[in-house]
């Protein structure tokens, strides 16, 4: 049984079913996947249980998903979130 993967900013990330997106990224050494709206600082997992909202990430085009809660699924397209994650909206 080959290991499932999802893509993260173009690279393939292996995971084990039952793991969250954040856990899978942590397992391969990715520590951050978001830049803050103010200072553009990197953030990743902090509370690990859906409380702190530091781990926000874009999953299949949907921003502000909590990486620590969202279960990884094969073929998911995951990407780094910049700021609000809604940069596509016309200003």
């Amino acid at each position: 049984m080959s290991q499932p993967h999802f893509s993260f900013d173009g690279s393939q990330i292996p995971f084990r079913p039952g793991q969250s997106v954040g856990a899978a990224l942590t397992a391969v050494g990715v520590r951050s996947w978001r830049s803050t709206r103010g200072a553009g600082r990197p953030r990743g997992l902090f509370c690990g249980i859906g409380v702190c909202f530091d781990c926000l990430i874009v999953v299949d085009g949907r921003p502000n998903e909590r990486a620590c809660l969202r279960l990884a699924e094969p073929g998911m397209e995951v990407s780094t979130q910049e700021g609000t994650g809604h940069g596509d909206l016309e200003v």
Binding site: Q19, A27, C68
Partner: peptide, 17 residues
């Protein structure tokens, strides 16, 4: 990044291996 809550570290282990 890398500074985590103690519970979060535990949750990664227990919940995700």
């Amino acid at each position: 990044p890398g500074v985590m809550t103690a519970g979060g570290v535990q949750a990664l282990l227990k919940g995700h291996g």
